[in-house]
């Protein structure tokens, strides 16, 4: 049994209690994925599984046999920052940097959800194509807490990235 992390296979843990988050942080030495609450309330542990954003603290690692997991460490290619990572630096979308990996992974998953037409609480028309307005971004990113108060910079960064991807 194995799980593919950032393109490389890794053994699943022997202990079925091990969360995907602890597998990443404690076993695989990939501490970029953060533990903020370990109970699904803060979003710091967000990773992408086959492109979908999930909370790795609420996921048992053994459930993800054969699945592709992308963590913050897997976004930069050939040492160059992912465009969204770069946008976070330019727009000062963080202060302490602890919620940042989760915000970035979440934003990438969120953009994919929008592309698939999944509406949010603030979508006016549930069947129309999703336009990621500022209000939509704020609503869809509200599961990722930031305590330093970098919210404006985070939304600016995601907004710029989405515009560039669409262009």
């Amino acid at each position: 049994m194995s799980i593919i992390i950032n393109g490389s296979p890794a053994a699943l843990p022997a202990d079925p209690r091990t969360s995907l988050l602890d597998l990443l942080r404690d076993t695989l030495s990939l501490p970029g994925t953060k533990k903020g609450c370990n109970q699904g309330a803060c979003g710091a542990c967000t990773v992408l599984v086959d492109g979908d954003r999930i909370l790795s603290c609420l996921a048992l690692a053994v459930q993800y046999d054969g699945r592709h997991v992308t963590t913050i460490e897997g976004l930069a290619e050939d040492g160059a920052l992912h465009p969204l990572q770069q946008a976070f630096v330019v727009h000062d979308g963080f202060q302490c940097g602890y919620c940042t990996p989760g915000q970035i992974c979440s934003a990438i998953g969120m953009a994919a959800e929008a592309k698939r037409g999944i509406p949010s609480h603030v979508s006016e028309d549930l069947s129309a194509d999703v336009v990621l307005t500022r209000a939509e971004l704020q609503e869809r990113m509200s599961g990722n807490l930031c305590r330093c108060g970098a919210h404006n910079g985070i939304i600016d960064a995601i907004s710029e990235y989405n515009t560039e991807v669409a262009a």
Binding site: K34, T71, E73, L75, L81, V89, T100
Partner: peptide, 17 residues
């Protein structure tokens, strides 16, 4: 821009735990 920014957005800053 923050000098430690690239490290933090890559998840490469090692925190105490």
């Amino acid at each position: 821009s923050r000098l430690d920014g690239p490290l933090k957005v890559r998840g490469a800053a090692r925190f105490a735990a």
